[in-house]
Design a protein around this nucleic acid. Sequence first.
DNA 1: TACAGCAGTTACCTGTTGGTAAGCAGTTAA
DNA 2: TTAACTGCTTACCAACAGGTAACTGCTGTA
Lengths: 115, 115
Amino acid sequence: MQKIDHKDCQASLLPIRDAMDVINGKWKLLIYISIANGNSRFREIERSIPDISSKVLAKELKELEANQLIKRTVYDATPALVEYTATEYSKGLGDVLTALKDWGTRHRNQIMSKA
Amino acid sequence: MQKIDHKDCQASLLPIRDAMDVINGKWKLLIYISIANGNSRFREIERSIPDISSKVLAKELKELEANQLIKRTVYDATPALVEYTATEYSKGLGDVLTALKDWGTRHRNQIMSKA
DNA sequence: TACAGCAGTTACCTGTTGGTAAGCAGTTAA
DNA sequence: TTAACTGCTTACCAACAGGTAACTGCTGTA
């Protein structure tokens, strides 16, 4: 009888849970990608993501900032000028995004072909 | 003036959205990992994941099956014997899991050190 | 003067997620 | 006989994600 290595399993659960806490939800990664691609102004980001609302965008931006993935800079001008940029630190997400994008593409095909 | 490549951006959004639809939520990846690590029985999986309830587990297992990440096999015995196993297809998730685990570990340190 | 843009905020409402607790039919062990 | 195991399901409820719409103060433009 095989013994299952529960330590290995448990060791994976925690980091994955941590990661998911940050990128969870319908919008966070999409917003991050938009910013990483060069969109920096609130309305610009809003327009770049289909169907997102101001309210959700504002809320998610705060969470992304709290997790140090983006930086919010306010320029002292009238009317207020605010810029969102991806942090150096956030570049570490690159592998996650690549893996998700690749798998998402393949999975779409898989599900479509069987439907 | 730089033109932002909105095509590149939009091209990433869709696959990522597809991927997130599947792995979104607090529990799905944790359940998948538990099964991939060798836990196959309902109660066994339940016990391997801290704080999960029967109700949530049952619901999530159905979704994982619908997405072809796990297979549910019922053996004709009394009392009923059910086995959950990771599908060959689901192995494609490997890169995603590795990336998430690595980043989750690093991110935990990052946030902890600044708190 | 009127409208559009900026960066959001507020109020209200719905749908999903998820937690708690109990229970079911059948079997085995004490 | 009682208790505990199996693989779930049901009822009830709370919290939160997310959608809709209106509105703010300020400025530049027609």
